[in-house]
Design a protein around this nucleic acid. Structure first.
Length: 394
DNA sequence: TCTGGGGTCCTAGGACCC
DNA sequence: TCTGGGGTCCTAGGACCC
């Protein structure tokens, strides 16, 4: 028999803030921005703040209206990652087979640990206690025979709970749930459920695979068929990683000025390229993303090349060309983004042959400049080329 | 309400080749 | 002439997750 725990930290960012600032304890803490920040969104609300109706993804201005006396902070990802690492280290003390899903949740495969740690439920309680003792954070947990059901169970144990689904009860448990508990069916799919009068998982359970496929499409249809039977565990078993890398920025006021637009494009591209350099990956595809202010519409563009990108100069050249191909000149820009895709492990085979020594020197120089820029971000914003080609004969 | 940022996967259609 | 089918690669947009 297999056993999985899904563990999910409660109101993670807000809890870390309360931990680091004891005066925030038992107060409504909202992470995501300061009152007055335009176009921000709530990232995490403490349970005290949720009493006011504040929740994740809510526009910050609305949160301020609901909870004017809340404690607002922009947040500090580095600190949250640090705390996350402490938690993950505890998990790995109990099982080597654990899968981190995001900064605040993980699956633990505890199959076969009974001799060491006792029955699964006992172990789940011990893990919760250890996390709290060592990090001061509370964690919601679900225990089941597969990951999917464990994930749903942990969601129902919030906050600071443990929800156990005994082996054999997976299908019965799923059937008892309303459709909005299905992990993997979001807003649009729930609208479809409503349209077809599907209120509970049992309603979906009655539909044949063929009907599900015709209503929801191939992949989603099959997924739903399995999900309501408590069998959808393999769906995220082999999630591919490192397929793309991107950065984007929403501006408090729409951009119109070309110089400003290009400056931001360069700055965002530098950030992506620097992150790419810190991996052993390379990319042949660049992506641009533009969101217009007036109607919130978003457009993308992408281009794939024969050979992997070598330098930031090259990346920025191509990006700028692609941007101007897609941009509807004159419209105000709310968001700019760029990224690289088709990531693959770096191969050094062709490089020395295909690329001349100028490119090699350029790469080395760029690398050190980007490293300096990341250390002193104030000095980093610089439009145009990082390095101009050396004029001939000088 | 006026809608972040960083990801993954799916769908549909076009281009191209055999 | 007036048009198959499979495979692969690519693009654009969208759904979803945390």
């Amino acid at each position: 028999m297999s056993y999985f725990i899904h563990a999910d930290l409660d109101a993670f960012y807000a809890s870390v803030e309360q931990l680091d600032h004891p005066e925030f304890k038992n107060k409504p803490v909202i992470v995501g921005g300061l009152p007055g920040d335009r176009r921000s969104v709530v990232s995490t609300a403490s349970y005290e703040a949720r009493e006011y109706g504040v929740h994740s993804a809510m526009p910050l201005v609305q949160a301020v209206k609901l909870c004017p006396d809340g404690i607002y902070v922009r947040g500090n990802m580095n600190r949250y990652r640090e705390k996350s690492a402490e938690v993950m280290a505890v998990f790995s003390d109990y099982t080597p087979v654990f899968q981190q899903l995001s900064v605040d949740e993980a699956f633990l495969d505890i199959t076969g640990t009974e001799k060491l740690f006792g029955p699964p439920e006992t172990l789940a309680r011990e893990i919760k206690k250890t996390i709290f003792d060592k990090t001061g954070l509370t964690v919601s947990t679900g225990l089941a025979s597969n990951k999917y059901v464990a994930k749903i169970a942990s969601g129902m144990s919030k906050p600071d709970g443990l929800f156990v689904i005994p082996p054999g009860d997976e299908e019965k448990f799923m059937m008892s749930l309303p459709t909005d508990k299905i992990w993997g069916a979001g807003k649009k799919t729930r609208e479809l459920f409503a349209k077809h009068g599907l209120k509970t998982c049992a309603d979906i359970h009655r539909l044949s695979p063929e009907i599900l496929r015709s209503l929801f499409g191939k992949a989603l249809g099959i997924f739903l068929y399995r999900a309501v039977r408590g069998q959808a565990a393999e769906d995220f078993e082999n999630k591919q990683e490192n397929r793309s890398m991107s950065a984007e920025r929403t501006f408090p006021y729409d951009l119109h000025d070309e110089f400003e637009i290009e400056t931001h494009l360069f700055s965002i591209a530098s950030e992506v390229f620097f992150r790419l350099l810190q991996t052993n990956l390379q990319s042949r595809t660049i992506i641009v993303k533009i969101r217009y202010g007036e109607d919130f519409s978003t457009e993308g563009g992408r281009e794939t090349f024969q050979n992997p990108l070598q330098t930031l100069n090259e990346y920025y050249d191509q990006l700028l060309a692609l941007f101007h191909k897609k941009y509807q000149a004159g419209r105000g820009i709310r968001l700019l983004g760029t990224g690289v895709a088709n990531l693959e492990p770096k191969s050094n085979i062709m490089q020395t042959e295909l690329f001349d020594s100028v490119t090699e020197k350029e790469k080395i120089l760029e690398k050190s400049i980007l490293a300096i820029n990341s250390k002193y971000p104030k000095a980093a914003l610089k439009r145009g080329r990082l390095l101009e080609p050396c004029p001939k004969g000088l």
